[in-house]
Simulated scan of single mutants.
Amino acid sequence: MSWSWEYVPDEETVASGAPPAFLAEVEKKADELVRAAEALHLHGATWQGADEGARHAFVAGGFFVYMITPRAELVTIWQVTPDPL
């Protein structure tokens, strides 16, 4: 396995209607989170601890809610919230 990120349940449900520039920032930050999680959890697939739970990440244009699941070597994005205009 190798680390990755994805929208849950899917991109259409989570990101529908969000501005493209904001989504680009979300995806850039998601890539950073994947690299950090991979470095922190070197043996992710054999992780025995609890998941960290939901967290918020703030990016230009808003924020998003995500979770790191070491056993699945996965960062999931559950909600994106662009700043109101």
Rank of each mutant, 00 (worst) to 15 (best):
S2H: 12
S2L: 10
S2D: 15
Y7M: 02
V8Y: 11
V8N: 12
D10C: 06
D10Y: 05
E11G: 13
T13G: 01
T13H: 10
V14W: 02
A15W: 01
A15R: 04
S16P: 01
S16M: 07
G17P: 04
A18I: 05
A18D: 13
A18S: 14
P19V: 05
P19S: 11
P20R: 10
P20T: 09
P20L: 07
A21E: 15
A21R: 14
A24H: 11
A24G: 08
E25C: 08
V26G: 01
V26D: 01
E27Q: 10
K28W: 03
K28M: 06
K29C: 07
K29R: 15
K29A: 13
L33D: 00
L33C: 00
A36D: 15
A36F: 06
E38V: 02
E38Q: 15
E38H: 12
A39N: 13
H41P: 02
L42I: 12
H43A: 14
H43N: 15
G44E: 03
A45G: 13
T46K: 11
W47M: 04
Q48F: 04
G49L: 00
A50Y: 07
A50S: 12
D51R: 14
E52F: 03
G53R: 10
G53Y: 07
G53N: 07
G53T: 07
R55V: 02
R55K: 15
R55E: 14
H56F: 08
F58R: 08
V59W: 05
A60M: 06
A60C: 05
G61C: 03
G62H: 03
F63H: 14
F63R: 10
F64R: 01
Y66Q: 07
I68V: 15
I68W: 03
T69R: 13
T69F: 05
P70K: 06
P70I: 03
R71T: 13
A72I: 01
E73I: 02
E73W: 09
L74W: 11
V75E: 04
V75T: 06
T76R: 15
I77K: 03
Q79V: 09
Q79P: 04
V80C: 02
T81F: 06
P82I: 01
D83K: 09
D83M: 11
P84Q: 10
L85S: 14
L85E: 15
